[in-house]
Nucleic acid binder design. Sequence first.
DNA 1: CGCAGACTTGACCGCGCTCAATGCGAGTGG
DNA 2: CCACTCGCATTGAGCGCGGTCAAGTCTGCG
Lengths: 249, 249
Amino acid sequence: MAQAIPFRQVSPLKASCQQCSLSNLCLPLAIGENDLARLEDIIQQGRIFNRGEHIFDQSTPYRSCFAVKSGSIKTSIITESGEEQVTGFFMPGELVGLDSIGGEHYACTAKALERTSVCEFPIDRLEELTGKLPGLQHHMYHLMSQEIQNSHQLAMLLSKNTAEERIAALLLSLSSRFQRRRMSPTNFSLPMARNDIANFLGLAVETVSRVFTRFQNQGIIKARGREVELLDIEALQLVSREFSRQCNN
Amino acid sequence: MAQAIPFRQVSPLKASCQQCSLSNLCLPLAIGENDLARLEDIIQQGRIFNRGEHIFDQSTPYRSCFAVKSGSIKTSIITESGEEQVTGFFMPGELVGLDSIGGEHYACTAKALERTSVCEFPIDRLEELTGKLPGLQHHMYHLMSQEIQNSHQLAMLLSKNTAEERIAALLLSLSSRFQRRRMSPTNFSLPMARNDIANFLGLAVETVSRVFTRFQNQGIIKARGREVELLDIEALQLVSREFSRQCNN
DNA sequence: CGCAGACTTGACCGCGCTCAATGCGAGTGG
DNA sequence: CCACTCGCATTGAGCGCGGTCAAGTCTGCG
């Protein structure tokens, strides 16, 4: 049964956004059904990356932005001195690479945190298409401005909040993003290591660990390794008070 | 001579980007001369704000983004608990309001730090125009992605760097932005109060003050109130090592 | 001249970083 | 099957940067 797959040859690499469970989160949500084919035309779909593989690398020529289909991605900047700064985590339905659009090179490195599949949008064709579809252009502006806002929220979190508040905010952010995908907002497994959390939130790994156990002792969460259960979401919201909106909404 | 100004009546409010000294920094740089008129058509020019006046307010309906012509602007977010977080400073030639494009409401409040004049770009007409001029659209993407990158740089500064490093980075950022406008990169006056600097960099006002005097004692800068002279730029770059690129380039 | 707001300086202390050791689970090979 | 290792996570002890609180000084403006 490995040989005969006749119908696939009709459109071997063409995406079918309509059948994708993420079409209500991803770019298609900005497009009418009649124009959807034009978007599908430019998508290079189905690339799969294993844990640790790079989707793209900082300072290499900018070619495409990517939508996460499954799995998860972290983006980070490597400074001249070799330090890493994690700039974001991306879950299914979210777009990676917006921070480099319009530039010559990628501004960050994107790495798969687990086995991850993506849809690729070549930038020249995407720009061409957004010029023709005002709704899509508007949506791109919207996504990019949201990324700016998220980043401002993060800066705020980093500059004004304690370790507990930062971690509570991150947990709530992940929770709402799982919920948006119709998954449990209270039981999930963290795609990233403690190290990445610490780096992202501007903390030491030890501090992250300590806060996790403190939350656990208070009965707010239950954590075993990367498996997390949020027992008292309201308590978390209380801890991260003004950040109920989150660094990633 | 106050009365007879016949030629102005031909285009009373029309902007003349060509004669603007900032045309090489602002949006016109993305447009060929023949298309420039189309941009000038949509600009509402010449609005002037006094120190402390708001250009726009957080959560009000999004109408326009603004280019600074002269003066300077600070943007900030007001949290639910009433705290302010300064998200950026904007100098002549820079665009304000990109963090809200594509959204329904302004994501922040923009306030004039001194007497400031701006050019206004109504968003619906700007989006329409970027749909027709690929070069302009590309430039908008570029500006927005740069804003994301700047914000990531800021987050990095906040999460990994000491008070001295943050302030050195800010001074260098301001320096290079003055230089870009052909003004002295070593002698300038800060448009913002210590309070705003502190808020922006996630520090206490007292800390900002202390670092300024420490730098002064080391002979790196000379500061009297808002008047600043950078005596040893290399020393500043050394202090803020990996941030020679800056939180605002 | 006097007041208010902005800025500076000093004393003190707590959060979170550092360093170091230990615990733990998964994968590997004898 | 156990011993070993390697990466990751946890826990503890000590301390320094920068926040807080409180005065004091400077500056511009009516």
